[in-house]
């Protein structure tokens, strides 16, 4: 990857909802390649997607992630767009997932144990922001937002992005993942 062509996702790293200021610790703005490498190196990563993946271009990126072997937690109504794609995708309620991820005893979506890294995009902004505040404060799991919007409660996050930049950024993340 030519670094000169890398998309800068660290701009506009301010909470998308103006009032969503949780406290002194807010997500570090990150570049797609960094997020991608973290995802590639994680022992047990999980991609969470939600009700805002029904757009054709966004959905295609979810499928790309899935085809690289990333397990997908399909929250909200997102499973309806993913069920027939042959991916390792599982429906779960986001609020319940946030609770379970904080529990070291949770066997995971497939019974193979918990997760060490969570990445996400395409979920109702405030809903996800609130949900990951549980992970931020009550778990040791790393949370990386590769959403279109800056999420202060993640450990690392893209800034607020235009649609085209968002899709291109997801492509850059996917490039870091080994092909199956």
């Amino acid at each position: 990857m030519n670094s000169e062509k890398a998309i800068d996702t660290t701009r506009q790293a301010v909470p998308f909802d103006t009032g969503n200021i949780p406290g002194p610790k807010m997500a570090r703005a990150t570049m797609p390649a960094v997020a991608g490498k973290m995802l590639a190196k994680a022992k047990r990563p999980l991609l969470i997607v939600g009700s805002e993946i029904h757009d054709e271009k966004v959905l295609a990126k979810v499928v790309d992630f899935g085809k690289r072997g990333i397990q997908i937690a399909a929250v909200g109504n997102s499973f309806s767009a993913l069920g027939d794609k042959g991916l390792d995708a599982h429906y779960i309620n986001m609020h319940a997932l946030a609770s379970y991820l904080c529990d070291p005893q949770w066997p995971g979506l497939d019974g193979k144990g918990g997760y060490d890294l969570v990445v996400f995009f395409g979920i109702t902004y405030y809903y996800m922001s609130q949900s990951i505040s549980a992970l931020k404060n009550f778990s040791k799991i790393k949370v990386v937002s590769i959403d279109k919007y800056y999420h202060p409660n993640a450990d690392m996050s893209f800034g607020n992005l235009r649609d085209d930049v968002f899709i291109a950024a997801l492509d850059e993340v996917i490039l870091q993942l080994p092909k199956k």
């Binding site: 949780p22 609020h95 904080c102 505040s133 549980a134 931020k136 009550f138």
Partner: peptide
């Protein structure tokens, strides 16, 4: 039914 906390403020 364990309480699950999702703080709006960490302060």
């Amino acid at each position: 039914y364990n309480p699950v906390y999702t703080p709006t403020s960490d302060m």
